Computed example of a mutant assay.
Amino acid sequence: MDTPASTDSPAGTSTDAVLRLTAHEAAERLGLPAGSLSVPELARALRDQGASEVVVTGDPHDWLDTAHASGWLTRPRSGPTDHAMRFEAALARGWVAADAAVLARLPEHATALDLPVLSVDETPARWTAPLTHVPALGVYAIVDSAERVRACAEAGAGLIQLRIKARRDDPSLVPEIRAALDAASSHGRTPLVINDHWRLALSLQAPALHLGQEDWLALRPTERTTIAAAQARGLQLGMSSHSLWELCRARGAGADLIACGPVWPTLTKDMPWHAQGLDNLAWWVRMAGRPVIAIGGILAPEQLEQCAATGAATVCVVRGLGNDPRATLPRWQRAWDAGHHHAAPRPAPAWPHPTLTPGAA
């Protein structure tokens, strides 16, 4: 990592009440005997004393208790020894503490073999190896009705997501999802992804499910176990990610597909994230170890072609489908083919750029 000169902060301290220290230093700072509290308890005690964010480093796990993420960050193999300098450098470059903790653990010329995983609770997530081959999936159509699922399936979309923003007890959901599944399976068996409604997706034996990070965090441990059991039977799990720690959490959750967004600014959702751009998208492709979904602000075929040229496994089209996906999808598919088979794929940068302003919720 190309870093500026190290700060002269004493061990166990950082700027603006962001603490990065070992468990021994944390206990010493609190005036407690070593081992008297668990690492998460030490971090909470430091927060209670006024620290805004705490990263407790160890081997092979770091504990994060930050404004944006908490959990065990588990690295797959030995990381850099100059963690303190790299952490401070990332903060100085505008990364929030949770992302700085990820960057501090990545070596020079990092690959997917180096990406840590992040847990959702006090049980460390299991690190699994990246895929050796990531399939190309084509155009990913996102629609809100069974009728539009049928249109996209007839037009040959690579993936289709049914995204219906409705309460889970809405009586129209079951027949609509069932009709969408029938429409997808009867037209070339296009994989249908159900957004959010995981219970119905499992009960109706949908082939794939997509969840946002907040949805995943809101699940009880037993519910996450239920989804994992469905994955073992063949369910594909997609998960959103907008930051480095969310990428690590998606990997720790066992996601089969990981969305990177927004690639460009989008009006579809109100969110605090800066645009990823094609540079971050290419970095996600290199580091995720899973098929990467490009999403957000993709309104023209030229944009889809650029996303495909990064190596993204699939690229989402929402508003660009227009009123008749049967008429619009061929143009998007030509753009996918051009980008996917581009003679000079877009290279990934050495390091990504920040996607959240420090202090943003």
Rank of each mutant, 00 (worst) to 15 (best):
P130G: 05
P130K: 01
P130E: 00
Y140H: 14
A141K: 09
I142T: 08
V143M: 08
C152A: 13
C152N: 12
E154M: 15
A155W: 10
L159Q: 14
L159T: 14
L159W: 10
I160G: 03
I160A: 09
Q161S: 10
R163E: 06
I164H: 03
K165F: 02
A166M: 09
A166I: 09
R168T: 15
D169G: 07
P171L: 05
P171E: 04
P171S: 03
L173Y: 01
V174Q: 12
V174D: 12
P175Q: 03
P175W: 05
I177D: 01
R178F: 12
L181R: 00
L181V: 04
D182L: 10
D182H: 10
D182Q: 15
A183Y: 01
S186Q: 15
H187F: 13
H187M: 13
G188K: 06
P191A: 10
L192S: 06
L192W: 00
L192M: 06
I194Q: 00
N195K: 00
R199D: 14
R199V: 15
L200I: 08
L200K: 05
S203Q: 13
Q205K: 14
A208I: 04
H210F: 02
G212F: 06
Q213E: 13
E214W: 08
E214K: 11
D215Y: 04
L217Y: 14
P221H: 01
P221G: 01
T225R: 07
T225M: 13
I227Q: 00
A228Q: 02
A229E: 08
